[in-house]
Deep mutational scan, measured.
Amino acid sequence: SGEEFIAMYTYESSEQGDLTFQQGDVILVTKKDGDWWTGTVGDKAGVFPSNYVRLKD
């Protein structure tokens, strides 16, 4: 389980282990570690910068 966040911006990365997503995607955040959080979008999982998302209303 985790908290749902909304992507405010598209995040694209070629780094292994990074979670890429489109603006407006719902991200289920499973771990918060400083500026880099872990989460899932659909069947993808990985880390992403926390300043790209906001808490879902």
Results as ranks from 00 to 15, higher is better:
Thr10Ser: 09
Glu4Ala: 06
Ile27His: 03
Asp25Ser: 08
Asp25Ala: 07
Lys44Gln: 15
Ser14Cys: 12
Thr40Arg: 15
Leu28Ile: 15
Ile27Trp: 02
Thr10Val: 04
Ile6Asn: 05
Ala7His: 01
Leu19Gly: 01
Gly2Asp: 09
Ser14Gln: 15
Leu55Lys: 06
Gln16Phe: 06
Thr40Glu: 15
Thr20Asp: 07
Thr40Ala: 14
Asp18Arg: 14
Ser14Ala: 10
Gly34Arg: 09
Arg54Tyr: 14
Trp36Tyr: 15
Ala7Asp: 02
Tyr52His: 05
Ile27Met: 03
Lys31Phe: 05
Thr38Pro: 03
Leu28Glu: 14
Trp37Thr: 01
Val29Asp: 03
Gly39Ile: 00
Asp33His: 09
Gln23Ser: 09
Lys32Pro: 07
Ser50Tyr: 08
Gly17Lys: 12
Gln22Phe: 10
Gln22Pro: 01
Gln22His: 12
Thr30Phe: 09
Lys56Gln: 09
Lys32Arg: 07
Gln22Asn: 15
Val26Gly: 04
Gln23Thr: 14
Ile27Val: 13
Val29Thr: 03
Lys31Tyr: 06
Leu19Lys: 01
Val47Tyr: 05
Gly34Ile: 15
Gly2Ile: 08
Ser14Trp: 09
Asn51Asp: 09
Thr38Gln: 09
Val41Tyr: 08
Thr38Cys: 09
Lys31Met: 01
Met8Tyr: 02
Asn51Met: 10
Asp35Trp: 14
Ser1Arg: 06
Ala7Ser: 03
Thr20Lys: 11
Val29His: 02
Ile27Arg: 01
Lys32Gly: 01
Asp35Ile: 11
Thr10Tyr: 09
Val41Arg: 12
Glu4Ile: 11
Val41Phe: 14
Asn51Arg: 10
Val47Pro: 00
Ile27Gly: 09
Lys31Asp: 14
Glu4His: 05
Val53Lys: 00
Met8Cys: 08
Glu12Ala: 09
Thr10Pro: 12
Ala7Leu: 00
Lys31Cys: 15
Trp37Val: 03
Glu3Phe: 09
Val29Phe: 00
Thr30Gln: 13
Glu15Met: 10
Ala7Lys: 01
Gly39Asn: 00
Ser13Gly: 13
Glu15Thr: 13
Tyr11Lys: 03
Val41Leu: 11
Glu15Pro: 04
Phe21Asn: 02
Ser50Leu: 01
Ser13Leu: 00
Lys44Ser: 08
Leu55Phe: 06
Leu28Asn: 10
Ser14Thr: 12
Gly34Glu: 04
Gly2Glu: 09
Val41Ser: 14
Asp25Phe: 00
Glu4Ser: 08
Phe5Tyr: 15
Asn51Leu: 07
Ser14Phe: 06
Val47Glu: 08
Pro49Met: 01
Gln23Tyr: 08
Tyr52Ala: 06
Asp33Cys: 15
Ile27Tyr: 00
Phe48Tyr: 02
Val41Gly: 04
Lys44Pro: 01
Gly46Ile: 02
Gln23His: 12
Lys31Gln: 14
Gly34Ala: 07
Lys32Trp: 03
Gly24His: 06
Gly39Val: 00
Gly34Lys: 09
Thr40Met: 15
Glu15Ile: 10
Asp18Ile: 12
Lys31Ala: 12
Trp37Asp: 03
Thr38Ser: 08
Leu28Trp: 14
Met8Phe: 02
Ala7Gly: 04
Glu15Arg: 14
Lys32Leu: 03
Ser1Gly: 13
Asp43Gln: 13
Arg54Met: 10
Ile6Asp: 05
Gly24Leu: 01
Gly42Arg: 10
Lys56Ser: 07
Ser1Ile: 15
Met8Gln: 08
Glu12Tyr: 08
Tyr11Met: 09
Asp35Phe: 09
Leu19Met: 04
Leu55Arg: 13
Thr40Asp: 02
Val26Thr: 15
Asp33Val: 13
Ser14Arg: 13
Val26Ser: 12
Ser14Leu: 12
Val26Tyr: 06
Lys44Arg: 14
Asp57Gln: 15
Gly2His: 15
Ser50Asn: 15
Arg54Phe: 01
Leu28Val: 13
Ile6Arg: 06
Leu19Tyr: 00
Lys32Val: 02
Ala7Met: 00
Val29Ser: 02
Glu15Gly: 10
Gly39Thr: 00
Arg54Thr: 10
Gly42Thr: 02
Asn51Ala: 12
Tyr52Val: 05
Lys32Asn: 09
Glu4Tyr: 08
Ala45Met: 13
Ile6Ala: 07
Lys31Ser: 14
Trp36Gly: 01
Arg54Ile: 04
Thr38Trp: 11
Glu12Ser: 13
Glu4Met: 07
Ile6Gln: 10
Ala7Ile: 02
Gly42Asp: 10
Glu4Asn: 05
Gln16Ala: 12
Asp25Trp: 01
Tyr11Trp: 09
Val26Trp: 01
Gly17Ile: 07
Ala7Arg: 00
Trp36Gln: 13
Val29Glu: 03
Lys56Phe: 09
Ser14His: 13
